[in-house]
Design a protein around this nucleic acid. Structure first.
Length: 704
DNA sequence: AAAAAAG
C-alpha cells in the first residue's frame, strides 16, 4: 500500500486511513504469497484507476487537491466510504457546507471539460457538449476502464470470496449445529435450479408463448419460465383499467389533453401509455421528466407508488431512442434496483414502452439462469435492469461492459446507499462513464444517500413531490399498545378483513411463524422473505397479487417498491427499525391516491421507542391501548377469524397450482383449476414439505 | 440487529 505514494506527491492521511492502509498492506502481502508476481500488475492497475477518478473529481484548488489525496486510500480500501467520512469529520472543514461542496464539484466538472478540450479542440465546455456520446471519445474510456483494470478487481474479489467460502465450508464440516436456514436455502436453490432445467414443463410454456405473443421477442422471453407468472399478474393488476388486447387496437387514441404529450415525450410512448389508461402524469413525473429529458442529473424523491418508474423510464427511453445502437455486451443504460421483485416490476412496467420504441431491454438479477442473460447481452441490449449482485457477476465474467452506459438509474437509492449495498453500487457506477446522465430516485433522500450523490451526480436537480413524511390525508395511522399475550389474536383480527393486507415482521423466521399462526387461525396468509427461493418468492407474490392469498406476511424485502394495488391495510406486527422504514412500509398502502390504513403493534417495552418513531415519521397519532375485539380494530375492517385452520398443503396448493394446467389457457382465464394437483403434485408437495419444516420450527419458537 | 444482493 505504500505504493500509493507512487505519484510522487506527499500524502497526508488521517489515522483511520493509515490504519486502513496498513490493513491493506497486510492483505496485499498475503495475496502476494498466494499469487506470486501478479502483484505488479495489480499495483499498476490501481494507479490507473486512481488516475481516472482524479480526472473526474479533480479541481485545481489546493483544497480540492487536498481532498483528493485525502480520499485516495479509499479507492484501495475495502470501505470506500471511509475516506470521505473522515474528510467530513475533520475539524478544519466543519464550515465546509454541503452546498459549498456541491458548487466545488460543479467547478471541478467544468475543469474536466477544459481538460478534454485541451485534448480535443472541437469540444465546447458546456454541458450539452459534454453529454454527447461521440465515437472519438470512447477509446480513451476504454483504455482506462478495460483490460488491465478488470482482472485486478476480479482477483481482489475472488480472493475475498474464496476465503469466506472456505470458512463456510470449514464451519459446516466441523459444526453440526449450522444455522438451519442456510442449509435450507442452499437446498432450495439447488432444487429450484434443477427444476428449472429439467423441465417437462417447458413445452407448455412454449405453447403459451406462441399463442399470445409476437414472435420477434421470443428470444427475449425464452428464459421466462417461472418468472413468467408474476409478470403477467403484474400486468393484470398494474393498470387498473387493464385493457384486453382487442380493445387496444379498436379505437384510435386521442392525445388531446394528454398530460404526457404535454411533456414532449414521443408520440409512440404517449400513445402506448394511453392504451393502458395512463394519461395523467403524477406530480413527480411532471417535475422530473423535463429535466431528465434535457439530460440533466436528477435527484427525485417521491413516495412509492408516486410513479417513479415512469419518471425515469420515459425520459431514458426517449433519449436512448434518439440515436445509437447497443453493441454486444455494452448496454446503453442501466437501472439498478435493490431487490429482484422490484427489478421484475420495473422490467414489466417498461417492457411495452421499450419495445414500442424499438429498443431492447433485459432483466439481470440473481436466482435466474445465466444463459438467457448472457445471450441477451451478447446480442446487444439497450437497457439493463439489474440487481447489483448479478450485474457485478456478469461484469466479472466479461459479459457486461458498462463503458458505454449513457444513462444510469438508481431506484430506491436510499436503500442502495446502505451498508453492504453501497460498495456494490460504487463498484458498478465506477465503471460507468463519468459524463453520462444519472437519475437517482428514492422515497427518502438521506441515509447516506449523499455519499452517492456527491460521488456520482453532477449538478443534480432535486425534485421532491412531498415532504417526506407520512401523508395523513390518505392514510389512517393507528399505533396499538398491546399486551404480549394478545399479540397473536390482535394480529389475526386485523389481518382477517376483506381485501389485501400486508403484514410486516422483523425477521424471516418471524414471517414464517406469523404466517403459520394466521393460517392456524383460519386466515389465509403466506410468508414472503429472502430465505425463499426465487420461484417460491414469485409464486407467493403472484398469489397475493391474484388475490388468492389476501394476507402477505413479509420481511422488509417487501417494504420497498413492491407494487400491489388495493392493499387496504399495512399491519406492522414488529415495529419498524426507524421512521424511514415506517414510511416505506406504510407506502405499501394508500397507493396512487387511494385510502389506506397503517396499524402498528407495540409491546409495553417498545412504547417509548414507538412513540418517538411515530413523531419522527410525522404521523400525528400516539399509542393507544388495545385488546382483541376493540373498536379500533373493527374500524380497520378487521374481525375475529372464524375459519378452520389452513394447512401448509392448502396454501401450497393455492400458490402453486399444477403447472400443467397452464398450457393453452388464455390470459384472463386463470382461476384455480378444478381437478386436483395433476401430474406435478409430487413436486409441489416436495417443495411444501421443506417449507413446512421451517415453519414448524418457527412456530415452536413462538410458543415460548 | 436484520434484511437485501452472487452461486
Amino acid at each position: 500500500m505504500p505504493k500509493k505514494a507512487m505519484d510522487g506527491k506527499k500524502v497526508r492521511w488521517t489515522r483511520a486511513q493509515k490504519l486502513e492502509a496498513k490493513r491493506s498492506e497486510v492483505r496485499a502481502q498475503r495475496d502476494d504469497r498466494d499469487r506470486g508476481q501478479r502483484r505488479d500488475q495489480g499495483a499498476a492497475t490501481r494507479t490507473d484507476r486512481r488516475d481516472r477518478t482524479d480526472r473526474r473529481e479533480g479541481a485545481p484548488s489546493g483544497r480540492d487537491r487536498y481532498e483528493r489525496r485525502d480520499r485516495a486510500p479509499r479507492r484501495d480500501g475495502e470501505d470506500r466510504g471511509a475516506g470521505r467520512r473522515d474528510y467530513a469529520a475533520r475539524d478544519d472543514r466543519r464550515d465546509y457546507s454541503r452546498d459549498d461542496r456541491r458548487s466545488d464539484r460543479r467547478w471541478s466538472n467544468d475543469r474536466d471539460d477544459r481538460r478534454s478540450t485541451d485534448r480535443r479542440d472541437d469540444r465546447g465546455g458546456d454541458r450539452p457538449a459534454r453529454r454527447s456520446y461521440r465515437d472519438d471519445r470512447r477509446p480513451s474510456y476504454r483504455d482506462d476502464r478495460r483490460d488491465d483494470r478488470r482482472p485486478a478487481y476480479r482477483d481482489d474479489r475472488r480472493d475475498d470470496r474464496r476465503s469466506s467460502f472456505r470458512d463456510d465450508r470449514w464451519d459446516e464440516r466441523r459444526d453440526d449445529r449450522r444455522p438451519a436456514y442456510r442449509d435450507d436455502r442452499r437446498d432450495e436453490r439447488r432444487s429450484s435450479f434443477r427444476d428449472d432445467r429439467r423441465d417437462d414443463r417447458r413445452p407448455a410454456y412454449r405453447n403459451d408463448r406462441r399463442d399470445d405473443r409476437r414472435p420477434s421477442f421470443r428470444d427475449d422471453r425464452s428464459e421466462r419460465r417461472d418468472y413468467d407468472r408474476p409478470r403477467r399478474e403484474d400486468r393484470a393488476t398494474e393498470p387498473r383499467t387493464a385493457p384486453v388486447r382487442e380493445q387496444r387496437s379498436a379505437e384510435p387514441i386521442s392525445l388531446e389533453g394528454n398530460g404526457f404529450a404535454a411533456l414532449e415525450l414521443p408520440e409512440v410512448l404517449v400513445e402506448r401509455l394511453a392504451r393502458d389508461g395512463i394519461t395523467a402524469p403524477f406530480p413527480i413525473q411532471v417535475a422530473t421528466i423535463p429535466d431528465a429529458l434535457a439530460g440533466r442529473d436528477v435527484l427525485g424523491r417521491g413516495r412509492t407508488g408516486s410513479g417513479k418508474t415512469l419518471s425515469f423510464g420515459l425520459p431514458m427511453l426517449t433519449r436512448l431512442a434518439k440515436g445509437g445502437k447497443a453493441r454486444p455486451g455494452q448496454p446503453r443504460a442501466i437501472v439498478l434496483v435493490p431487490t429482484r421483485e422490484l427489478a421484475m416490476q420495473v422490467s414489466d412496467a417498461l417492457q411495452p414502452l421499450v419495445h414500442i420504441i424499438g429498443l431492447r431491454h433485459k432483466l439481470v438479477a440473481g436466482g435466474m439462469p445465466y444463459e438467457p442473460q448472457l445471450s441477451a447481452l451478447e446480442r446487444g441490449v439497450d437497457v439493463l435492469i439489474a440487481t447489483p449482485g448479478r450485474l457485478i457477476d456478469l461484469m466479472e465474467r466479461g459479459a457486461a461492459d458498462l463503458s458505454r452506459v449513457e444513462i444510469a438509474v438508481l431506484d430506491e437509492a436510499d436503500h442502495m446507499a446502505e451498508m453492504g449495498f453501497l460498495e456494490a453500487i460504487q463498484q458498478i457506477l465506477d465503471q460507468v462513464p463519468t459524463d453520462g446522465q444519472r437519475l437517482l430516485f428514492s422515497a427518502t433522500l438521506d441515509r447516506g444517500i449523499d455519499t452517492v450523490v456527491e460521488q456520482y451526480l453532477t449538478d443534480p436537480v432535486e425534485h421532491a413531490t412531498d415532504d417526506g413524511t407520512a401523508s395523513v390525508d390518505t392514510m389512517d395511522h393507528h399505533a396499538l399498545l398491546i399486551e404480549p399475550r394478545y399479540k397473536k389474536a390482535v394480529t389475526a383480527e386485523v389481518a382477517n378483513r376483506p381485501g389485501r393486507t400486508v403484514v410486516f415482521v422483523r425477521t424471516k423466521l418471524g414471517a414464517d411463524r406469523v404466517a403459520g399462526e394466521l393460517r392456524d387461525q383460519g386466515v389465509m396468509a403466506a410468508a414472503l422473505h429472502g430465505g425463499l427461493n426465487q420461484s417460491q418468492r414469485n409464486k407467493v407474490l403472484g398469489a397475493f397479487k391474484d388475490g388468492k392469498v389476501p394476507v402477505l406476511v413479509a420481511t422488509d424485502v417487501a417494504a420497498r417498491g413492491i407494487h400491489v394495488d388495493d392493499v387496504g391495510v399495512v399491519l406492522q406486527v414488529d415495529p419498524p427499525a426507524d421512521h424511514k422504514d415506517y414510511l416505506h412500509r406504510a407506502g405499501r398502502t394508500a397507493r396512487a391516491g387511494e385510502k389506506g390504513t397503517v396499524v402498528t403493534l407495540a409491546l409495553p417495552h417498545q412504547r417509548r421507542t414507538m412513540q418517538r418513531l411515530l413523531d419522527e415519521a410525522g404521523v400525528g397519532t400516539s399509542l393507544q391501548n388495545a385488546r382483541p375485539g376493540d373498536d379500533v380494530i373493527r374500524a380497520t375492517g378487521g374481525s375475529t377469524p372464524q375459519g378452520a385452520p389452513i394447512s401448509e398443503q392448502d396454501l401450497q396448493r393455492l400458490i402453486s397450482p399444477p403447472r400443467a394446467s397452464r398450457g393453452g389457457r388464455s390470459y384472463g382465464d386463470r382461476g384455480p383449476r378444478q381437478g386436483g394437483r395433476g401430474r406435478y403434485g409430487d413436486r409441489n408437495r416436495r417443495d411444501g414439505s421443506s417449507y413446512g419444516g421451517r415453519d414448524r420450527f418457527g412456530r415452536g419458537h413462538s410458543a415460548r
